[in-house]
């Protein structure tokens, strides 16, 4: 059988970089990020967060092939920002949002438990 190993989907092979970045040679403030061993879960979340950024002119992601375990994120920004800056800001904002969500959920759980006991 020549089926790829199942862990290939989430284990970055030795010597391979998790994330790479390539500038667009033709368009200013545009570039492509490639994240290895990630899928729609992360790709869609980053794209939607980038859409909230007013200095982002374009943000899109794709999973090029179901057996190529990577996502590609393309970003173009205004001169006020840069793809890297927008990408970092999106990740920071998402992290803060999730940290808040975690706290809110934990508070709600203890609130709910107090109701019962």
């Amino acid at each position: 059988m020549n089926a790829p190993d199942r862990y290939e989907r989430f284990v970055v092979p030795e010597g391979m970089k998790k994330v790479t970045y390539e500038r667009d040679m033709k368009i200013m403030n545009a570039g492509t990020f490639t994240a290895q061993r990630e899928d729609h879960t992360v790709g869609n979340v980053i794209r939607m967060q980038l859409h909230r950024d007013r200095s982002v002119l374009f943000a899109g992601y794709k999973l090029p092939h179901p057996l190529e375990y990577k996502i590609i994120v393309k970003i173009q920004t205004t001169s006020q920002s840069s793809p890297m800056q927008a990408y970092n800001l999106a990740l920071n904002d998402l992290d803060k949002e999730l940290e808040h969500l975690k706290r809110a959920f934990e508070a709600e759980i203890s609130h709910k438990q107090n109701e019962y006991y």
């Binding site: 970089k17 990020f33 879960t41 990740l91 992290d95 999730l98």
Partner: peptide, 8 residues
Amino acid sequence: KLDGVRLS
């Protein structure tokens, strides 16, 4: 996961 895709 999001932390893992930060640029080095």
